[in-house]
Design a protein around this nucleic acid. Sequence first.
DNA 1: GCAAGGCATGAATCTACAT
DNA 2: GATGTAGATTCATGCCTTG
Lengths: 245, 245
Amino acid sequence: MLKGFPDNSVDLIFADPPYYLQLPKGKRLKRPDGSEIIPVDDAWDQFDGYEDYDRFTTDWLKECQRILKPTGTIWVIGMYHNIFRVGKIMQDLGIWFLNDVIWVKIGALPNLNCRRLTNNHETLIWGVKDKKSKGYTFNYQLLKKMNGDKQMKDTDWSFGICRGSERLRGKDGIKSHPTQKPLKLIQQVLLTSSKKGDIVLDPFMGSGTTAVVAKALGRKWVGIEREKKYVDLAIKRVENFTIAK
Amino acid sequence: MLKGFPDNSVDLIFADPPYYLQLPKGKRLKRPDGSEIIPVDDAWDQFDGYEDYDRFTTDWLKECQRILKPTGTIWVIGMYHNIFRVGKIMQDLGIWFLNDVIWVKIGALPNLNCRRLTNNHETLIWGVKDKKSKGYTFNYQLLKKMNGDKQMKDTDWSFGICRGSERLRGKDGIKSHPTQKPLKLIQQVLLTSSKKGDIVLDPFMGSGTTAVVAKALGRKWVGIEREKKYVDLAIKRVENFTIAK
DNA sequence: GCAAGGCATGAATCTACAT
DNA sequence: GATGTAGATTCATGCCTTG
């Protein structure tokens, strides 16, 4: 999918790949009031076992690494279902980690069957092209300022999940994309590790959140998305987006 | 190392394996006041590349899985250096994840070069023997009670690092073990997922924190440790330990 | 005895540039 | 590419000393 891109051409990659949730088919989880929870069971999250998922993961990560500038950085977000596989594959490709960041999800779903701890976070891996990479962007002072004049930590990322007026919905009221990420999370990513004018790539664009934030912050952006309905959604969203306030 | 153990014999495993930090050799990190940071560069954290580390990891995890009861659970702690590799290997062996838990480290080292986010957490993976495992212990109500009558989340684990009078030191004042874990963290693990009388195994016993907590909570324990100096240390520590208050 | 301030220290893949 | 050096930079905690 990235074959057309030249080597070493992108400053920042933000990737939100399929999580491969492996939910039991046919079973539906219900809230105590009887209402149903709509699971992520779209075709794009279906794989033929770990091997298939790993092959898919290796393919897109290799291309991302190839087109990343030696001064660029890559972010990948995931959950415990997939992030460990993704992280090991990244390391095996030679991507060198800078941090793993915990997004604490405010307003996340409580645990309904009381047999596990409540899932309340997602993990972001932040890395450079390879071990010898130098000169990547890290806006230390800006983040420190944003964090009450204290160093920003890898555990200071608390943001509400995407809901309310930010959440895109069709005329039927059903959410347009099952895993839309909050603007503030992506904004934090771009503010941390990019400058104005940088080229930002999102290889799994979905509803276009990365594009919207990039536009608002004066970064150039490129998005890739397999499903036409999401491409249409994202384009419309970016066009209509104006900076609030 | 676990060859002598029968299959399906252990209720809980807590493993704190080498992290394979890959620190630059010879370079010393200094605080702004000129004092030196003592790095973890012990022989037991040295490996011949990722392949070597993966082989080591696969070996001990396979044995842990073998001796774990079908109703038992396993915890593994690590950082971004190693936890993704360890996690993928666990999944490949068929261990089924229940949660990944974020230990927020109160009092962790700040970032001195200001080129990354501050490392402020470690990650614990909690899993069962395999996907079809049932009947594991999860003390939901107890944890809820401990957490102010709210469900315990995978991000609610904030504990201070091991220091002060809890930190074991030799007569020279130098810490006896470079990576001693805080009692409260291990206590939380045991309270979450074990009952009185359960058999708890720590395959990397180190300074014996798991043993001390297990004893205090009325669990039976088994510890494995390669270095004799740590075995001696741990035995002495457990013998002398009495429950405070 | 108590309060305030000094000081030590923690699993660290902690950089950039010149030769 | 490898090696050496200059240069900029830190936070929370707990023990201990001082007043």
